[in-house]
Simulated assay, not measured.
Amino acid sequence: MKHLGDLPDIIPIFPLSGALLLPRGRLPLHVFEPRYLAMVEDCLKTSERLIGMIQPREVPGGEAPRLHAIGCAGRLTGFSETDDGRYMITLTGISRFRLREEVAGFAPYRRVRADWAPFARDRGGAEEDAGFRRAAFLPLLQRFFQARGLSTDWGALEAAGDELLINALSMLCPFGPEDRQALLEAPSLQTRRETLVTLIEFALHSGDGPEEPMQ
């Protein structure tokens, strides 16, 4: 368990639209821009090895994109380098954070002062969802995957714990950036599951006709 005092006040951030990292989730990333190559190299020199994933809000006029208020920090747990100097990394989610302010400096990448306090639960063990009805959820998920032409290992999904299943689907399903932000900001595993079900039902309704709702 990571305690509040173990987490740094200032972290580097990787603003990436559509990318979603959740606590205890794993996010592979392909890094090739010089500023983010520098960020990874600097990150590897720290004891925490944290990078904050956060979604940008696009603004007109070529200004630096504004950022959403909430992101998720991940520990760099996987690293490899390609022959042409790109990095393949994996972040393992540690905790969400609220952006307090951006921090000026000489680094080529952006950094923020992070408020970890609102998300103390993220640093505990895996969450459970007592209201999760897996027998009703999986057929709905199958219809969604069929409609989108997606495939998966259904045996692994059926065997996965509640948090692993819900969070992995939240990270992997093809939702838009604002929908992914809603999944990130869900205050509990139950509310994330309810949001996920709503998004799946809406996608099926809009693409393939009405579906029976699952609460």
Score class of each variant (00 low, 15 high):
143 R>L: 07
113 R>D: 04
195 T>L: 03
32 F>H: 02
25 G>Y: 08
112 V>M: 04
94 I>W: 07
183 L>N: 03
6 D>N: 11
9 D>A: 14
179 D>P: 05
173 C>N: 13
19 A>E: 05
198 T>G: 13
154 W>I: 08
212 E>W: 05
92 T>R: 11
213 P>W: 03
167 N>D: 14
104 A>T: 09
201 E>I: 12
21 L>S: 04
111 R>M: 09
52 G>I: 01
72 C>E: 04
137 F>Y: 10
155 G>D: 14
171 M>C: 05
98 R>E: 15
200 I>G: 06
207 G>C: 00
120 A>K: 15
92 T>P: 07
145 F>W: 15
10 I>A: 09
125 G>S: 15
8 P>K: 12
115 D>S: 10
180 R>E: 02
22 L>W: 01
186 A>P: 04
9 D>P: 07
137 F>V: 06
17 S>N: 08
80 S>W: 04
10 I>H: 03
200 I>M: 11
84 D>F: 07
3 H>A: 13
146 Q>S: 14
195 T>F: 00
76 L>S: 01
138 L>T: 08
88 M>A: 12
83 D>R: 12
215 Q>K: 15
44 L>V: 06
209 G>C: 04
177 P>L: 07
92 T>L: 07
157 L>T: 09
72 C>A: 08
203 A>D: 13
45 K>I: 03
23 P>G: 08
81 E>P: 06
181 Q>W: 07
22 L>K: 01
95 S>R: 08
195 T>M: 03
1 M>E: 12
15 P>R: 00
182 A>C: 09
179 D>Y: 03
44 L>N: 08
205 H>M: 10
89 I>T: 05
84 D>M: 11
12 P>D: 09
47 S>T: 13
40 V>M: 05
76 L>C: 02
215 Q>P: 13
196 L>I: 03
125 G>P: 09
158 E>M: 11
149 G>C: 04
147 A>M: 00
39 M>D: 04
135 A>I: 12
52 G>S: 09
155 G>F: 00
57 R>C: 05
115 D>Q: 11
135 A>Q: 12
173 C>L: 13
131 G>W: 04
102 E>A: 11
94 I>R: 00
66 R>I: 00
158 E>G: 13
183 L>S: 06
28 P>S: 01
168 A>K: 11
204 L>C: 01
209 G>R: 00
132 F>R: 10
146 Q>T: 14
47 S>Q: 15
117 A>P: 02
106 F>H: 14
130 A>Y: 15
55 Q>R: 05
130 A>V: 13
42 D>E: 07
76 L>H: 02
1 M>L: 11
96 R>G: 00
93 G>S: 10
59 V>F: 06
186 A>W: 01
121 R>A: 15
79 F>H: 15
78 G>Q: 13
74 G>R: 03
178 E>Q: 15
21 L>C: 02
55 Q>H: 02
101 E>D: 12
208 D>L: 08
65 P>M: 00
121 R>Y: 08
200 I>R: 08
200 I>V: 12
